[in-house]
Amino acid sequence: MDIEILHKLNIERENRRAVMVVTDLATGKGRLICEGDTVDGDLGAVVGKGFRSGKSGTVEIDGAELFLNVHVPAPRLVVIGAVHISQALTQMAALAGYDVKVIDPRTAFATSERFAGVDLQADWPEDVLKDAPLDAYTALAALTHDPKIDDFPLQEALRVGCFYVGALGSRKTHAKRTDRFTQAGITEVQMEKIHAPIGLNIAAATPAEIAVAVMAEIIETFRKRGMAGL
């Protein structure tokens, strides 16, 4: 590996961008490919698959044995609202390997007793996200029901391209949200990325069951990202 490739690789990883090192195992020649780069031919297909699955491995292309080492940032979950569902969701997300953060400016909800061991921020999302911005490998679940708290982080998540954006609320609530977001300049295409009503339809009834539905939807969206239209 060339030192220049290692340097770029480390920068991309630090900035939480997916990146891949392709090494020709016969010649030792390496190449760095960032997610979103255009790669032609057979290699392009395996590169796309590699980024989606996050799996590294060897492939044979045009008689050459290539090793693809995929570096994908650890997925994160930002939960807006220190509500009952969030208490279950944070535990499930941690089990599934997600870094979790809960944001709620209402100090009555955001207490360390209710969220022991969780990264909990009792501040407005506007302030928290300034220091810890969202990115493409972050899922955002807005669960407060309160537009004053939910709207900003939802719009921010759509703007930066979070892989998952979910919002609690009925279809009626979401229709009103859509009106507000349209006025705020959110496009129709962006709006369609919001999962609302939130969670897979498993007829969940209790807060913990809703958390299961939300977590399952997040996992599905992460593992199937980039597969639309296939």
Binding site: I3, L6, H7, L9, N10, R16, G54, V70, H71
Partner: peptide
């Protein structure tokens, strides 16, 4: 899947070269 941390071996390798 590689999980990126601040002080993993790839960062150490780059530092060593430096």
């Amino acid at each position: 899947m590689q999980v990126t941390t601040q002080n993993d071996e790839l960062n150490i390798a780059e530092r060593w070269v430096g």
